[in-house]
């Protein structure tokens, strides 16, 4: 890519790809922006003309808006904490030489292959059902009153379900990171008098920092938009309405495309704020 000629040739050849990407991104984005400024009610007259900032104002001033932002952040944060913590522990466990390692690893990864709708249904009906769920039986076995998980502890339940799905992903990435740790470093620390706990905090955890960063960033992207789990379990009731779910309700249940689009723009802004904070907090771990 040194000469003038090869540079312009490169630009020419990259142009179609760049163009395609731009169209791919810009068309939906500009359509969302366009609709967010229209009064668009598909079943009640269709496109009823320019709305100015009405949709934006209505979306933000609705009593569901701020709670939904909070719910989104709580679910994302909760799942991140649970998956990273248990992911690190599981990765360390799986790194130990043990009998049947291959089978155990596959079992640990399995939840990742279960579709969100299915896993949410399984959790809802088999584990969390207040009369027939396994948890209810367990509680009764110990003489306690069964909890109706999805109504009384709706957010923790959702965090649990989503964490169960994402734990394999975190474990897998953290396991490969742990395996790349030079065993001589651990031995050196052992000779230097570090207890197993000190070795974990001074050697293993810093070594994992980059992998943890990647897990946090990637999971955040996907967790901001979880939907199926909420739809299947609580349908947004009991304070589990995330921003994504609120937008869904505005567009499909209220049949208000304009309002939903304004919500979509807020969701983009929220995602960017979260991304900005994350990059500030953990981004430096990615520098070599």
């Amino acid at each position: 890519m040194a000469t003038q000629h090869s540079r312009s040739a490169a630009r020419l050849m990259m142009a179609p790809a760049v163009f395609l990407l731009l169209v791919w991104m810009l068309v939906p984005l500009s359509m969302t922006l366009w609709f967010s400024f229209r009064k668009y009610l598909p079943l009640r007259g269709g496109d009823l003309g320019w709305a100015g900032f009405d949709n934006y104002v209505r979306f933000v001033t609705s009593s569901s808006f701020w709670p939904s932002v909070m719910t989104t952040l709580i679910i994302v944060g909760g799942v991140l904490v649970v998956t990273v913590m248990f992911g690190v522990l599981l990765a360390i466990l799986l790194d130990q030489p043990m009998w049947g390692q291959g089978v155990v690893r596959i079992l640990v990864i399995a939840p990742f292959f279960v579709m969100p709708t299915v896993s949410a249904l399984v959790w809802k009906n088999m584990f969390m059902d207040p009369t027939n769920g396994l948890f209810a039986h367990l509680w009764r076995f110990f003489g306690a009153e069964p909890i109706s998980w999805l109504s009384e502890a709706s957010l923790p339940s959702l965090v649990m379900i989503v964490s169960w799905q994402w734990l394999p992903f975190a474990t897998l990435i953290l396991l490969t990171a742990i395996q790349s740790l030079d065993s001589e470093q651990l031995e050196a620390a052992e000779m230097d008098g570090a207890s197993p706990l000190s070795r974990f905090f001074y050697i293993i955890l810093p070594h994992l920092s980059r992998a943890i960063t990647i897990v946090v960033l990637i999971q955040t992207i996907f967790l901001l938009s979880i939907f199926a789990e909420i739809f299947v379990t609580t349908s947004g009731a009991f304070g589990t309405k995330t921003l994504t779910y609120l937008i869904f309700q505005r567009v499909l249940e209220s049949q208000n495309v304009g309002l939903g689009s304004a919500g979509g723009v807020y969701a983009i802004i929220l995602a960017n704020i979260v991304a900005l904070f994350l990059m500030r907090i953990v981004g430096k771990n990615l520098d070599a």
Binding site: D182, E184, Q185, E187, A188, A189, E190, M191, D192, G193, A194, Y202, I203, P206
Partner: peptide
């Protein structure tokens, strides 16, 4: 190892 009052220099240096 830590109780033997020995110090080791590894082939890979094993610096943190």
């Amino acid at each position: 190892p830590a109780k033997r009052s020995l110090a080791m220099v590894f082939q890979s240096y094993a610096l943190y």
